[in-house]
Measured scan of single mutants.
Amino acid sequence: MSIQHFRVALIPFFAAFCLPVFAHPETLVKVKDAEDQLGARVGYIELDLNSGKILESFRPEERFPMMSTFKVLLCGAVLSRVDAGQEQLGRRIHYSQNDLVEYSPVTEKHLTDGMTVRELCSAAITMSDNTAANLLLTTIGGPKELTAFLHNMGDHVTRLDRWEPELNEAIPNDERDTTMPAAMATTLRKLLTGELLTLASRQQLIDWMEADKVAGPLLRSALPAGWFIADKSGAGERGSRGIIAALGPDGKPSRIVVIYTTGSQATMDERNRQIAEIGASLIKHW
């Protein structure tokens, strides 16, 4: 067993022997301040990774656009098919120029040779490549099948209805392509620590998230040296922004954090800054 596999296998073990965790309302004060600064709703939840206990939450059962955070769930569904012998990570998928959609920095470079399922998941999570996500959605049967996968996990809230990039439209009061912070946090925890996926697939999923290259201005910008984070960000229309993450000190994750916002007129930089400040408060009061 590799060191990384050992780390993920012992996530519940280490967490069980940690000192009790206590909620700190100071972080919620910052979440509410972010709402004021952005002029928009902000949803927040913080779960203990081992027990699933909610440590703090704000608007945990209000719907927010998922945006690209759905790509972690998508690759979880792909990995479940791999575990069941219905898919192979090494299978190569070929596609054409007509398949390319807006923001496809990886797939646009491989029109000639195609990409493997493993490479597509890596591109979808680490670079948020939209064509990679659409190609992977095709392998599982489309958005409705991802929703069905989530329902089978016990998540009857999260739903995907459309493809990239239309799913980022974020129309107010439109339930399409949305989740709730509580539902997303619980589902992410199941994917990373539950028995739904094999140990190898859980490790692969967290490795992809740990290698995320496009979430630097968010929670990662607030992390002290030595902290662990595996995350996936999302951005959408109407001032929408979000991030889902597993993080913790001492090089291992111990909490799940989900943050979503929508309806702001603020710039992307300002949305990023507010999420980073929430992260800084979380870490300060850990």
Rank of each mutant, 00 (worst) to 15 (best):
T138R: 15
F64G: 00
L282H: 02
E237C: 12
D33E: 12
K232M: 00
R7T: 14
D212I: 02
P105V: 07
S281Q: 13
A235V: 05
L146Y: 06
R59K: 09
L135C: 06
D155R: 00
K32L: 11
K252S: 13
V21S: 10
P253T: 08
Q88R: 12
T186E: 15
T187D: 12
E87D: 10
S264P: 03
A15H: 08
R41M: 11
T147V: 11
W163I: 12
W227K: 00
L223M: 11
G114W: 04
I278F: 04
A266M: 13
V101I: 12
A15D: 02
R159D: 06
E61P: 01
F149K: 07
F58A: 09
P249M: 08
T138Y: 12
A215V: 04
P65W: 01
S240Y: 03
P12W: 12
M180Y: 14
R241A: 04
K232A: 01
I3N: 14
G234N: 01
K213S: 11
K109P: 07
L74I: 07
Y95F: 14
G43I: 00
D231R: 03
S96G: 13
R118A: 15
T27K: 04
T187F: 06
F58N: 15
R81K: 14
L218G: 04
T179W: 00
T186D: 14
M184H: 02
V82H: 09
L191F: 11
L111T: 13
N134T: 05
T262F: 05
D83M: 03
L89I: 07
G43Y: 00
V21I: 07
S68L: 00
N50L: 12
V101T: 15
S281D: 08
P65A: 06
P143Q: 06
G85C: 08
Y103M: 06
R255I: 05
G248L: 00
R92H: 10
T186L: 15
L218E: 02
R255W: 01
V72Y: 01
P65H: 04
I45Y: 09
S201P: 03
V8I: 14
L74H: 01
I45S: 06
A40F: 04
V42K: 00
V157E: 12
A280C: 11
L160C: 11
P60D: 15
D36Q: 04
L10H: 06
T179Q: 00
S221A: 13
A222G: 11
C18F: 06
A280S: 14
F14N: 02
I229R: 01
G251K: 14
P181S: 05
A245I: 02
W208S: 03
D99A: 10
R92V: 15
G76I: 05
N130S: 05
G154E: 09
I45Q: 05
V42G: 01
I171D: 13
S80R: 11
